[in-house]
Design a protein around this nucleic acid. Structure first.
Length: 132
RNA sequence: GGUUCGUGUUAGGCAGUUGCUUCCCGAAUUAUCGGGAGGAGGAAAGUCCGAACUCCGCAGAACAAGGUGCCGGGUAACACCCGGGGACUUAAUUGCGCAAGUAUUAAGUCACGGAGAGUGCCACAGAAAACAUACCGUCCCAACUUAAAUUGGGAUAAGGGUGAAAAGGCGAGGUAAGAGCUCACCGCUUCGAUGGUAACAUCGAGGGUUCCGAAGGGAAUCCCGCUUAGCGGGACGAGGCAAACCCCACCUGGUGCAAGGUCAAGCAAAAGGAUCUCGAGAAAUCGGGACAAGGUUGUUCGCCUUGAUUAUCUGUUUAAUCAGAUUAAUCUUUUGGGUAGACCGCUAGAUUCCGGGAGUAAUUCCGGAACAAGAUAAAUAACUGCUGUCUGGAAUUAAUCCGGAUUACAGAAUUCGGCUUAUUGACACGAACUUUCU
RNA sequence: UGCCCCGUGGUGUAAUUGGCAACACGUCUGACUCUGGAUCAGAAGAGUUUAGGUUCGACCCCUAACGGGGCAG
């Protein structure tokens, strides 16, 4: 397993999981209210690890902008996930997270950079650690 | 030199680190790791047209429905492209002409068949809005009567007024007043000749007549053409709307990769079975082997016992137990269809560039070279450095130093050809305007 | 990805051979009442999503764009 990698095994790809997460998951907001994360913890799992997805609503912007937001979210999660991974292996749980923008949209945040995005993601990851 | 517009080209380059994804090679052979090669646009967009491909349907023809609409060419095809024609708008030529109109040049626009097959509509205003009509007016006659005015009977589409639109325009003659009533010119239209594949253009000749009928129409006269005892066509044929119905000509079967195909958990259904298999036998059943569970044993082999479970019913029995029924459920086997899911379809073709030939051009033929993403909760990204380009400041002849920007529109989803829409900077070409110099 | 439908005052709906954009609720003002509600009287508020075209004339017909909704697993 690569340290900073994010392969297809660590992503949510099944519709069943999305239904589970959106119906029973817990919604968290970052302190600046720009991002939100929906997470669900499976206490008796088959596999141990983290599974993530990055969802952007179709109403918030054009296809280019949505792709860019997803890439930036993925990038910032990928570089900062190591702490959380250790904790998850200690607790022996399966953690699902779906990241989404909350108040960001194309009108006001046309060209957002990675530096602006990173603190919000870190904030969210800290909140998730507290739940565990 | 600057500004604006149009057309075309192009979407900075190199290196490093981290990461995603497709294919190939190697190690492992489930997972994964290492190396190599590749990884978004001019519009990938809108989904407005046209095709390829797919399955379904289909003897043939017609109707319905939908589409296209000047002519010719290109193309796999087209609502596309190229060339030609025509119409309209604006400007200029202080063009020609008394005027109406018309010629040439430049720029732009055109969904540009048919209103002479039929039906329908044309509000308000106006006398009248479609087989026309007399409101005001003009003129004549009659009455009262000298005249004017008034009333009645006629003639008249020149003038006024209404309207988007009132049955060619203008000038002259003509007349009681008028009128294509007559004439010149222009327009319109018919026929012919010439040019052109054709749309069409140029030239020439003719065309506004009279009588009958309510009308369709008929007759005469004149003109033109022909196959010439005759036949056919025409004589201003009388508004607009077909992006109203419609007529004419041509085109189209439907469906869309979530098409379609292969494999196939689960659930449901159907048919069996009660561990499987071999042998004997008509069958009940018997025997051997394997398998599973339990017992024996420190362990293995071996040996022994049993052949899934629960409920119900029947028989036996005091009861349990045991035996049977195969009744129900569970379990299990098979079957066809087939969901989740996986795979195929899936990326190498009506491709691009260069040279030569054909063609005014679109395009096409020949030769050579190059390239060619295939994801599926959906990859193609992030950061750093150098450099190119643009730009601000210091400086200003250049070099140099410090700093900033690198952007717009926008992200493949079966694949092509177009159209439409969005859009920044740079470069090239062309046009218009303006400034300076010669 | 493919297909289909819609767009009219603040809100919900009308307006069809193409001829003045209508109604209800809401809003505002006045009357009634000690005050409010109810009731009565009156007023304002659109130029029909946008841009072109056809037509004398367009909510209506045609073309393009923009926005919204739905269907197909």
């Amino acid at each position: 397993m690569k340290q900073f990698g994010l392969s297809s095994k660590e992503r949510i790809k099944n519709k069943k999981y999305f239904d589970l997460i959106y119906s029973r998951g817990e919604v968290l907001f970052s302190s600046s209210n720009r991002l939100k994360a929906i997470c669900f913890i499976d206490r008796n799992p088959d596999n141990i690890g983290i599974k993530t997805a990055f969802a952007v609503s179709k109403k918030s912007g054009s296809a280019v902008w949505r792709n860019r937001i997803k890439r930036l979210l993925r990038e910032s999660f990928r570089l900062n996930k190591s702490n959380l991974t250790e904790l998850v292996y200690e607790e022996k749980v399966l953690l699902f997270i779906v990241f989404s923008p909350n108040t960001i949209n194309q009108e006001f945040n046309k060209n957002i950079s990675l530096v602006e995005m990173m603190p919000d993601v870190l904030d969210l990851l800290n909140r998730i650690r507290k739940i565990l």
